[in-house]
């Protein structure tokens, strides 16, 4: 790994103080901030995602690591140029119309930020207009969350709205949402857990969407 091993380890071990110290040391030592982010912090969060997928880590540890990552991002982000931070893509995340639940959505936001994406948190109760505005502002991936079977059907409207726009991908997830439902409504991707969101977004942007 070309980056700072200490920073990578600190994120992996969810040690916020060490992350802050390592980022500051890197910045002071002249390491490009884009390298700190893309070569150290993002790979560490990917490793955490991989460990979650393998059943070695669980949501509390993931959240703890994401918080450590965020502490580093708080230092790095103001120093990044647009091209540095937006290089992976812009993603908008929201809970669909009629649904006020946000825990799952918040986890996805944290994981995607940790994955190096520029993330817009659209909040809850998101209408088509909210998603349209996010696309107008540059998001190319829309993540839709729902907790209720009675609200998840709104995802079909979001998918339908952007189905003819190849530049926009729609990913769905949430407790009642299944892969079969995602396929049924024609979503571009489905994430069973928040930790999968980064992988699914990456696959969508690479053109190998798992759910369509």
């Amino acid at each position: 790994m070309p980056g700072d091993q200490e920073l990578f380890d600190a994120v992996l071990q969810a040690d916020r103080d060490r992350v802050i110290a390592a980022v500051r040391a890197g910045v002071d030592g002249g390491t490009p901030v884009s390298s700190l982010l893309m070569d150290c912090m993002v790979p560490a969060m990917r490793e955490i995602g991989d460990r979650f997928a393998a059943g070695e880590l669980f949501i509390p540890e993931m959240l703890f690591a994401a918080r450590a990552m965020q502490a580093g991002l708080d230092i790095v982000e103001p120093l990044l140029g647009d091209s540095d931070h937006g290089s992976l893509g812009r993603v908008a995340v929201g809970t669909v119309k009629g649904d006020m639940h946000d825990i799952g959505k918040n986890l996805v936001v944290m994981m995607l930020k940790g994955g190096g994406y520029r993330v817009t948190d659209l909040g809850v109760d998101c209408s088509l207009e909210t998603y349209e505005a996010a696309v107008a502002e540059g998001s190319t991936v829309l993540c839709c969350s729902a907790l209720l079977t009675s609200t998840m059907t709104y995802m079909k409207q979001v998918v339908g709205r952007f189905q003819k726009d190849p530049a926009v991908k729609v990913i769905v997830g949430g407790a009642p949402v299944t892969r079969a439902f995602a396929e049924d409504i024609g979503a571009d991707g489905f994430a069973e857990h928040a930790s999968e969101a980064t992988r699914v977004v990456s696959a969508c942007l690479a053109g190998s969407a798992p759910a369509r």
Partner: peptide, 20 residues
């Protein structure tokens, strides 16, 4: 709580709003 007719539309069930 998100209450139907107040915080959410009248034909949506009540919902628990977990604080951040």
């Amino acid at each position: 709580y998100g209450v139907p007719g107040i915080d959410v539309p009248p034909d949506v069930g009540f919902q628990y709003l977990e604080p951040g």
